[in-house]
């Protein structure tokens, strides 16, 4: 079984990202379970979503404590949330991170990232380019998914695009383009 944790802020679409990925995995024959952090979500506040997938039915019904990988939709969350809590060694950290900033400065502040595989993509820039959400609070979830499937290969890009068609109510083509662009742009960071 694999467990993935999404970190985002209310409004960025972390919960929907997890649902789209779950649908894509299910379409490829996996058993899936996805849920938001249980509580009351507020726009802009840190939120989490969780995804389990397996080749057999998932009976475990408790929180995810030791994720295999994490996806971070807002670069600023690294400062306020202990994003690597419980993350399994060598798991992926996929970070939405601006191209014009130096990731190594973040790495200096977070030496613990060395225990994991790190990849970044400027999902914010991509989401703004395709006018997904307002410029000040772009919806980065579809872009980050493109990057995530590229680095993990858990599911094909095509299947994620099918999931987007099912879940995203508006600007479907733009969302798909954003997903494809992030798929191309994601970079693994060597520490």
């Amino acid at each position: 079984m694999k467990e993935i944790r999404f970190h985002g802020r209310g409004g960025q679409g972390a919960v929907i990202a997890s649902e789209i990925l779950a649908t894509a995995l299910f379409a490829e024959g996996k058993y899936v379970q996805t849920f938001p952090e249980f509580g009351v979500e507020r726009r802009g506040a840190p939120v989490q979503a969780f995804l389990r997938f397996d080749t057999k039915p998932i009976l475990l019904r408790c929180k995810v404590y030791t994720p295999d990988d994490i996806v971070v939709l807002d670069p600023m969350l690294v400062r306020t949330v202990n994003i690597t809590q419980g993350l399994k060694p060598n798991g992926w950290i996929l970070l939405n991170y601006p191209d014009n900033l130096d990731i190594h400065k973040t790495l200096q502040l977070h030496p613990e990232f060395k225990n994991y595989r790190l990849a970044t993509v400027d999902a914010t820039k991509i989401a703004i380019k395709y006018r997904l959400g307002p410029k000040t609070a772009p919806i980065v979830n579809t872009a980050i998914l493109g990057a995530f499937v590229r680095i993990t290969n858990y599911v094909t890009l095509e299947q994620v695009i099918d999931g987007i068609k099912e879940y995203v109510p508006l600007k479907i083509d733009e969302n798909i383009e954003a997903t494809k662009e992030a798929y191309e742009m994601v970079r693994e960071i060597q520490s």
Binding site: E19, F26, Y31, V32, Q33, F35, F38, I58, R61
Partner: peptide, 11 residues
């Protein structure tokens, strides 16, 4: 159960 089923998606 609240959330554990109500807000949890599965096939």
């Amino acid at each position: 159960d609240a959330f554990v089923l109500s807000h949890t998606s599965e096939p």
